[in-house]
């Protein structure tokens, strides 16, 4: 593998990892703060992508469509939390699994009902199309760099919110000791609604930005959900830092495996996970 290809793969891996982080951070936040395992998290990613397609058709503007999709996803998250999830806090994991499986069914059916089962695509907006050249022969698409930077920006924003704001303080307190936060006399329900809504929005945003890179197909949510599980398990359940490290790790390993070990490529991240779990059953950054 020469240097240019290596560079391209590395960039691809980083970009994929950052995208995974965007989705996994919501999953791990919702679990860490609320103790809810949301299997329907991948569906939010799918919904983001489909919404993006729909609004691009409608408005013909990339930015506007992205904003509309994000807002709708946020609203959807809030509604789901208020109507369904908030009945589950005192229930066991099994009920959570069942309810969120039911949600997957509903979302998949809605997707098929509203948008059909044919693959869809969104064009890269004009101002982000084109490529920059890495070497004389190898080029890299601008859009992918844009996605990576956007994800980095969002990750940095998330970091700032969690570490520098009052809301973030509550989130961190909730991660380490949920009962304590409830004892502090804080309106825990509002915190939960915000966290869940934000988690859904992050996943949907990942769907939004990946819409121009990959085709929009039914079942895309489940596929990404499993990858996120791997990220969250490797990183340690509930740990944002762990999710970040693990997402980059999974992104890079997955991308390079596709080139170097094509026969193992779809299994490699699971093998990685199994190995890490044998060494550290609670993940790399568990509390």
């Amino acid at each position: 593998m020469d240097f240019a290809i290596f560079l391209v793969q590395l960039l691809n891996g980083l970009q994929y990892g950052l995208l995974l982080f965007l989705i996994a951070s919501g999953l791990t936040l919702v679990f860490g703060v609320m103790g809810i395992l949301n299997l329907a998290h991948g569906s939010m990613y799918m919904i983001g992508a489909y919404l993006m397609w729909y609004f691009v058709q409608l408005t013909d503007s990339f930015v506007l469509a992205a904003l509309l999709s994000a807002v709708i996803a946020l609203l959807l998250g809030v509604v789901i939390e208020k109507t369904l999830i908030n009945r589950l806090y005192r229930r066991n994991h099994l009920d959570q699994v069942l309810l969120t499986i039911g949600m997957i069914f509903v979302f998949n059916a809605m997707q098929s009902l509203l948008w059909g089962d044919d693959p869809l695509g969104v064009a890269v907006p004009g101002w982000l199309s084109g490529s920059i050249s890495l070497t004389e022969l190898v080029e890299y698409p601008v859009y992918r760099i844009f996605v990576a930077l956007l994800c980095l920006l969002l990750a940095a924003g998330l970091y700032l919110v969690i570490n520098r704001t009052r809301l973030g303080m509550l989130v961190r307190a909730g991660e380490s000791n949920r009962e304590m936060v409830e004892c502090l006399g804080i309106d825990i329900n509002r915190l939960y609604t915000i966290v869940f809504g934000a988690g859904v929005m992050l996943a949907a945003l990942a769907g939004v930005v990946s819409a121009p890179m990959a085709s929009i197909v039914p079942g895309m949510g489940e596929h990404v959900l499993i990858s996120c599980f791997v990220v969250v398990v490797i990183g340690g359940m509930g740990s944002i830092k762990g999710a970040f490290v693990a997402a980059l790790m999974v992104g890079i390993v997955d991308t390079f495996a596709a080139v170097l070990l094509p026969q193992l490529s779809s299994m490699i991240v699971y093998i990685l996970m199994a190995v890490i779990l044998i060494i550290k059953p609670q993940g790399l950054f568990s509390s």
């Binding site: 395992l37 398990v233 093998i271 996970m273 609670q282």
Partner: peptide
């Protein structure tokens, strides 16, 4: 032996991931 080192939510996720690995294989 691998899966049962974990429990609860971890077990849900790791069993799913191992089954997916097998599925992709």
């Amino acid at each position: 032996v691998i899966v049962l080192r974990t429990s609860g939510v971890y077990m849900i996720m790791i069993t799913l991931a191992i089954a997916q690995m097998c599925f992709y294989f």
